[in-house]
Deep mutational scan, measured.
Amino acid sequence: MEVRTIKVFTTVDNINLHTQVVDMSMTYGQQFGPTYLDGADVTKIKPHNSHEGKTFYVLPNDDTLRVEAFEYYHTTDPSFLGRYMSALNHTKKWKYPQVNGLTSIKWADNNCYLATALLTLQQIELKFNPPALQDAYYRARAGEAANFCALILAYCNKTVGELGDVRETMSYLFQHANLDSCKRVLNVVCKTCGQQQTTLKGVEAVMYMGTLSYEQFKKGVQIPCTCGKQATKYLVQQESPFVMMSAPPAQYELKHGTFTCASEYTGNYQCGHYKHITSKETLYCIDGALLTKSSEYKGPITDVFYKENSYTTTIK
């Protein structure tokens, strides 16, 4: 009895394709271990004539594949690729409408935090270190965002349907971005203890939790000093293409032309909904596939993004 075979390709990165001759009487799992086709788990399936010449994702289970996976995804987590594939199996079914010149995501599976993050990423200057993220990001900007969303979920250790947080998501993504040249110098002034300067680099240099107003941050924000008295913390120097200011959701007025974009969060910790506000020729609110415009805006804002380049204080 002759062994019926077909020729397929296996890959971990969709760049390096490895030619395989597979036995049609055995499952993919018996031949390769966990195997995925377009995100779908085909591990328990036997090869079919229609699979001839198709590319299958496999887990990096030998040295060659491990090197290829690390170079593309910059992670050695053995569960990463499987999590990416199972997320992709959902995100490829989502709709990605162009809204006001940006790629958004039609609401499904509690994905409003991903839509808000995706919209924000198209408006701030950011370059990702893992080629996987950078490639998928370019495709997302062009309207094909399924891979990018699935990668975000995998890097953030999230599953489809789980509630997510924009600030946490951005923080994970910033860790995989090139923020080497970003720098922030802060000064804390206390009447009792004097003053202390701190220099922050990388992710810490672009994120701040405690106030939404970048102007206020430049002037000074009140913080408790270690001595128990009130101290003032203010920005001395900022070198970065953008800054992200966050605070627990509270009524906040966004003035046209003073910011790049913002995240609105309605609801409580267990259950809520994100919308995205962007400042173009007027203010726009993007909620999944829905767009509304207004000249002014007041609502429960939790993150505001500002364009920056270089700032030095005039406070002496």
Score class of each variant (00 low, 15 high):
109 D>R: 06
45 I>V: 09
77 D>S: 07
210 G>T: 06
78 P>L: 09
84 Y>D: 00
112 C>R: 09
192 T>A: 11
292 T>R: 08
220 G>H: 04
58 V>T: 10
183 K>F: 09
40 A>S: 11
185 V>Y: 06
253 E>R: 11
142 A>N: 12
164 G>R: 01
42 V>I: 12
220 G>L: 03
221 V>E: 09
268 N>A: 15
10 T>A: 09
153 L>I: 13
197 Q>L: 14
217 F>C: 05
65 L>A: 10
160 V>K: 01
269 Y>N: 14
177 A>F: 04
154 A>N: 00
202 G>T: 02
19 T>E: 12
122 Q>H: 02
150 A>F: 00
23 D>L: 11
236 V>N: 06
80 F>C: 00
185 V>T: 10
279 S>V: 01
115 A>M: 15
55 T>P: 07
210 G>S: 08
72 Y>E: 15
197 Q>W: 07
138 Y>K: 13
312 T>F: 14
240 S>A: 08
97 P>L: 09
215 E>W: 07
62 D>L: 06
193 C>R: 03
60 P>W: 08
188 V>Y: 07
106 K>V: 03
255 K>M: 08
136 A>K: 01
299 G>C: 03
71 E>M: 15
236 V>W: 07
297 Y>K: 01
234 Y>S: 08
59 L>T: 13
209 M>T: 12
304 V>P: 07
220 G>E: 03
32 F>P: 02
117 A>V: 15
167 R>A: 08
201 K>I: 11
297 Y>L: 06
131 P>L: 01
236 V>A: 08
78 P>A: 14
170 M>H: 03
264 E>Y: 05
226 T>D: 12
88 L>P: 02
152 I>Q: 03
94 W>M: 01
120 T>Y: 05
219 K>H: 09
195 Q>Y: 11
175 Q>D: 13
21 V>F: 12
132 A>S: 05
251 Q>A: 12
50 S>R: 15
312 T>S: 10
299 G>D: 07
189 V>W: 11
81 L>W: 08
237 Q>V: 09
43 T>N: 06
212 L>Q: 06
32 F>A: 02
100 N>S: 15
160 V>L: 01
130 P>M: 04
6 I>A: 04
229 K>H: 11
72 Y>H: 15
197 Q>M: 12
159 T>K: 10
218 K>M: 07
140 A>W: 00
201 K>D: 06
79 S>N: 15
159 T>V: 10
240 S>F: 04
221 V>N: 04
177 A>C: 15
216 Q>Y: 03
79 S>R: 11
114 L>G: 02
25 S>G: 15
50 S>Y: 11
280 K>G: 14
303 D>Q: 04
217 F>L: 12
233 K>F: 05
162 E>M: 08
296 E>D: 13
162 E>Y: 04
31 Q>E: 05
190 C>A: 04
229 K>D: 14
77 D>N: 04
292 T>M: 13
237 Q>I: 05
133 L>N: 01
310 S>N: 08
99 V>L: 11
155 Y>I: 04
315 I>Q: 10
296 E>M: 15
217 F>H: 05
112 C>F: 05
315 I>P: 15
210 G>K: 06
246 S>M: 03
227 C>I: 03
104 S>Y: 00
245 M>P: 09
145 A>Q: 02
161 G>I: 01
237 Q>Y: 13
167 R>C: 10
78 P>M: 07
272 G>D: 03
98 Q>G: 04
177 A>M: 06
169 T>K: 00
42 V>T: 06
245 M>H: 00
44 K>V: 10
67 V>T: 12
81 L>F: 10
259 F>R: 06
71 E>K: 07
53 G>M: 14
282 T>K: 13
96 Y>A: 02
234 Y>H: 08
248 P>S: 07
251 Q>N: 10
178 N>T: 08
199 T>V: 13
190 C>D: 00
287 D>W: 00
238 Q>A: 05
59 L>G: 08
78 P>N: 15
277 I>W: 14
37 L>V: 08
132 A>F: 00
278 T>G: 03
172 Y>T: 14
300 P>N: 15
22 V>Q: 00
143 G>L: 00
31 Q>C: 12
149 C>W: 03
314 T>R: 09
167 R>L: 05
140 A>N: 04
182 C>G: 06
277 I>C: 06
100 N>C: 02
91 T>D: 00
283 L>C: 09
28 Y>T: 01
261 C>Q: 04
169 T>I: 15
294 S>T: 14
90 H>Y: 10
121 L>D: 02
11 T>C: 03
263 S>D: 15
248 P>G: 09
65 L>S: 13
282 T>E: 14
280 K>I: 07
277 I>A: 03
304 V>T: 05
220 G>F: 03
291 L>D: 07
59 L>F: 13
302 T>M: 00
219 K>W: 07
66 R>E: 11
74 H>F: 02
224 P>I: 10
113 Y>N: 02
240 S>E: 05
9 F>G: 03
303 D>W: 01
178 N>R: 11
167 R>D: 06
138 Y>W: 09
35 T>V: 15
65 L>R: 10
223 I>G: 10
75 T>K: 07
169 T>C: 11
215 E>Q: 06
119 L>G: 04
54 K>P: 00
154 A>G: 03
211 T>N: 12
253 E>A: 13
150 A>S: 02
115 A>N: 08
102 L>P: 01
290 L>M: 13
248 P>M: 07
253 E>Y: 08
35 T>Q: 01
8 V>A: 08
211 T>R: 04
232 T>E: 08
264 E>S: 15
20 Q>C: 12
162 E>R: 03
50 S>N: 11
223 I>R: 05
80 F>Q: 02
260 T>L: 13
154 A>R: 02
3 V>C: 14
107 W>I: 10
257 G>N: 12
309 N>D: 10
298 K>C: 14
212 L>F: 00
267 G>E: 15
314 T>I: 14
219 K>V: 09
252 Y>L: 09
60 P>M: 10
225 C>A: 03
280 K>C: 08
93 K>A: 09
33 G>L: 00
76 T>Q: 12
257 G>W: 02
286 I>D: 04
254 L>A: 08
77 D>A: 06
257 G>Q: 05
35 T>M: 11
228 G>A: 05
183 K>Y: 08
159 T>N: 08
279 S>W: 08
163 L>K: 14
230 Q>H: 12
110 N>Y: 05
83 R>C: 06
237 Q>N: 12
180 D>E: 12
143 G>C: 00
105 I>V: 10
295 S>E: 10
87 A>Q: 06
144 E>R: 07
271 C>K: 14
193 C>V: 01
155 Y>V: 01
59 L>Q: 12
148 F>Q: 00
43 T>Q: 14
99 V>C: 08
67 V>L: 11
261 C>T: 05
143 G>R: 01
130 P>W: 01
242 F>V: 06
70 F>H: 10
170 M>Q: 01
41 D>P: 10
287 D>H: 01
222 Q>A: 10
260 T>E: 12
214 Y>P: 07
280 K>N: 10
225 C>L: 02
22 V>I: 14
89 N>G: 12
106 K>P: 02
256 H>D: 07
263 S>R: 02
71 E>Y: 08
242 F>Q: 11
201 K>F: 15
50 S>A: 12
47 P>L: 00
61 N>A: 12
130 P>Y: 02
50 S>Q: 15
63 D>F: 09
278 T>V: 14
226 T>E: 14
27 T>I: 14
286 I>N: 04
185 V>Q: 08
316 K>T: 13
162 E>L: 03
236 V>G: 07
251 Q>R: 08
166 V>W: 03
273 H>K: 08
247 A>Y: 02
57 Y>W: 15
5 T>N: 09
145 A>T: 02
223 I>D: 12
229 K>E: 14
221 V>C: 07
199 T>P: 05
62 D>G: 07
297 Y>Q: 04
254 L>W: 04
269 Y>C: 14
251 Q>M: 14
75 T>H: 04
54 K>C: 14
114 L>Y: 00
257 G>L: 03
13 D>S: 02
50 S>F: 15
51 H>V: 00
124 I>S: 04
265 Y>I: 09
108 A>H: 07
123 Q>G: 03
43 T>A: 13
88 L>D: 00
247 A>I: 11
273 H>L: 05
191 K>E: 12
129 N>F: 06
84 Y>G: 00
31 Q>A: 13
237 Q>M: 11
166 V>N: 11
189 V>E: 10
261 C>N: 06
119 L>R: 05
308 E>T: 08
116 T>G: 08
209 M>G: 06
66 R>F: 08
225 C>F: 03
305 F>L: 06
97 P>K: 05
297 Y>W: 09
109 D>H: 08
179 L>H: 07
153 L>S: 01
122 Q>W: 01
237 Q>P: 05
64 T>W: 08
